[in-house]
Design a protein around this nucleic acid. Sequence first.
DNA 1: GGCAACCATTGAACTAGTTCACCAAGTGCC
DNA 2: GGCACTTGGTGAACTAGTTCAATGGTTGCC
Lengths: 194, 194
Amino acid sequence: MPYERLKTAILKHVPFSDEEAATFCNAFQPQRYKPKEYLLRAGEICRFEGFVAQGCLRVFALDARGGEHVLYFAPEDWWVTDLDSFTNQQPSWLFVQALEPSTVLQITKADKDRLYAALPATEKLFRIMGQKTLVALQRRMLSALSQTADARYLAFVGKYPALAQRLTQQQVAAYLGITHEFLSKIRRRLGQKK
Amino acid sequence: MPYERLKTAILKHVPFSDEEAATFCNAFQPQRYKPKEYLLRAGEICRFEGFVAQGCLRVFALDARGGEHVLYFAPEDWWVTDLDSFTNQQPSWLFVQALEPSTVLQITKADKDRLYAALPATEKLFRIMGQKTLVALQRRMLSALSQTADARYLAFVGKYPALAQRLTQQQVAAYLGITHEFLSKIRRRLGQKK
DNA sequence: GGCAACCATTGAACTAGTTCACCAAGTGCC
DNA sequence: GGCACTTGGTGAACTAGTTCAATGGTTGCC
């Protein structure tokens, strides 16, 4: 049951009763995606906020020359949306794509607004989750400003070893902000055979 | 009156009555800082969340070799804290320093928690402000991943022209993730005399 | 009013990371 | 079972950005 993961995840932050948790979870619709399938493309309006029950997605942007740059990966238990496009219902500049066969529990903007009204603790839930995301992104920003690609790569595999295994090197490179050729050279230098 | 700026700022996001707004604002204490004065140093626990009523601060980190890297600047109407250290009351890895003579309205963790309890809309207020900060940081992260230093510099002065005037080039460079020497060369190349 | 900091600029030598072209191995598809 | 496609690796030439050292101009301080 994909809803169990969602229930467990939210109860970590907010003390919902069983009924409240059910009200919360029932506002989400499960959707399955095949590898390479897009949930959102730049120019579209993001109609969902999703909780990944299974699989792995990526959120990325294209630069002027067609290069892909990964904002984040979303494996199981992560949330995925274009926050700006979703909250303001305006055109996105991001792509959201499944990397593996994935199941995502999705909520619409209207249903999320209903949740805020029906269960006030929802405010706190998303405030806290947003704060954690912000702290993590601040760390990554500082890492981008201050560390060399070698150090960023080591930090990434150190922090997310299981995820690093699931991703191709191209995806990892697009997250680190380097070319996959250079990542290959870093790995050789570090003697990483894995 | 420094509280007027704070009141105006919060009423943009949340419909407080005059009494509620007063309750909110009175939880904050004004503090004045001289240029170069530190509000927080790495290793300390961040005891405040602040609203800048006047002046300008910077939040930065040191790398292994002593280089400074700016996470963000906080001029008038911006909020400033080490979110991680403040919310979890654990040692910080950041520095917060005044760049100009500044007045900051500050709240402690305990008083902020009291606000959350006394005025539930406070949850919404900080959820929304957090979301906006997150969206802005996502944009900056993608810019760091995908753009050259020239483009990032132009984007910065384009987005924050007044702020760029107030800062030294060293500060701007530490925000862009380049050396101030290289920033100087970029500016020459662009023919910027300002 | 003079000295000490700090700031912006510049040039030369260097290094981290890119680009392009190519090759080998795996994987999935029909 | 074969073919197309994607992936990972490698080398050579290149470029964006760093490092170091030096200079001159402001600014602020006592």
